[in-house]
């Protein structure tokens, strides 16, 4: 009994501490890599005085974890702003009525192709799906890569589990472009040919950079991490039919039912600003600005990516395809 009182005091202190932390803090769920996004959110905090609580996702379940969490919390939202690192999950949230409309100054500067006309979500700073190739293991030409993908053994190629993140977007695009049967057949074929299925795009990058695999499917931001580390890697955009590339924007949205709508709007406008797009373009992840920016402020690499992204596959109509594709993938993996 002597220890009951200290325990009560401790539990009380925890609750008190939490209450002290709470108040007007803005809760942000962020699927974008914390190593890039945290600094931007901290700058926002310093500049506006709005305190932000950041909740990040794991690499393995990238973005889908937070999307599912937001669906689960629909009736008792704890999140105010969702910074997704892709679009299709956000479309799902939008369809389920989880998102609130907001059209601010940031919304106005983003082209229509990358935003919801009702203002429930807005895209910014895109990445691309690319092949990462180890130049010491494979001839770094698109032809050699194409041969490696099309023919024979894939045991020295890597891909992330397609249930999550941008690999899910990649599959959804193929579902839409090829149709379900061709995608399923391709998927089973690559698995039969022993492709290495790993937990995330970062792991794909690590395997190729270390020479354990010759090439793999990843995103531009992961590729640049390997390149900056001086690894012998090169990238080529993944092209679906008609030479279209898969360019995946970040998206930001306000959660319906937020009690901090003014602060949430302030953050959304900040994230959609030219300043943030430039910051992300000039960060190690080299993201492609979608709104108008001073092109002199961009590196040659980002300018090249922006050129490729001009022929991006349209994603904003793929909500249904994503749903069907994800349902099939769940039946494949979660049994």
């Amino acid at each position: 009994m002597r220890l009951v009182l200290p325990v009560c005091v401790l539990v009380g202190l925890v609750l008190g501490y939490w209450l002290l932390l709470g108040g007007e803090r803005l809760v942000v769920y962020c699927a974008h890599d914390s190593i890039y996004s945290q600094k931007i959110l901290e700058t926002f905090e310093k500049r506006t005085g709005v305190a932000v609580d950041m909740v990040f996702d794991t690499e393995a379940t990238k973005s889908l974890g937070l999307v599912e969490r937001l669906i689960r919390e629909k009736d008792a939202p704890r999140c105010d702003v969702f910074w997704n690192n892709e679009l299709l999950g956000t479309l799902d949230l939008s369809e389920r009525g989880v998102l609130a409309s907001y059209k601010g100054s940031g919304y106005a500067r983003i082209p229509d192709a990358f935003k919801d006309l009702e203002g429930r979500w807005t895209g910014f700073a895109a990445r691309m799906r690319v092949f990462i190739v180890n130049t010491e293991k494979l001839l770094a030409t698109e032809q050699a890569l194409s041969n490696a993908v099309e023919n024979g053994d894939l045991s020295r190629a890597a891909v992330a589990k397609p249930l999550y993140g941008t690999t899910l977007t990649h599959y959804t695009v193929l579902w839409d472009r090829w149709g379900p049967e061709k995608l399923k057949s391709w998927h089973h074929d690559t698995r039969k040919r022993d492709i290495r299925e790993v937990t995330g795009n970062a792991t794909v990058k690590n395997l190729v950079a270390a020479g354990k695999c010759d090439f793999g499917f990843t995103d531009t931001d992961d590729f640049f991490v390997a390149k900056d580390e001086g690894k012998p890697v090169k990238m080529f955009p993944v092209r679906v039919a008609d030479g279209k590339v898969i360019s995946i924007p970040n998206t930001v949205c306000i959660i319906k039912g937020t009690r901090r709508s003014a602060a949430a709007a302030k953050l959304v406008d900040y994230l959609l600003s030219e300043e943030v797009e430039l910051a992300l373009a000039n960060s190690k992840s080299r993201q492609i600005p979608l709104g108008p920016v001073d092109r002199d402020g961009l590196s040659a690499e980002v300018r090249e990516l922006a050129g490729w992204a001009q022929s991006g596959y349209p994603l904003s109509s793929l909500g249904e395809a994503r749903k069907a594709c994800l349902s099939w993938l769940k039946s494949e993996y979660l049994k």
């Binding site: 393995a60 379940t61 974890g65 669906i71 589990k161 249930l163 999550y164 993996y333 979660l334």
Partner: peptide, 8 residues
């Protein structure tokens, strides 16, 4: 864990 966070 992955399945659950993925929506199971």
């Amino acid at each position: 864990f992955d399945a659950q966070t993925g929506g199971l």
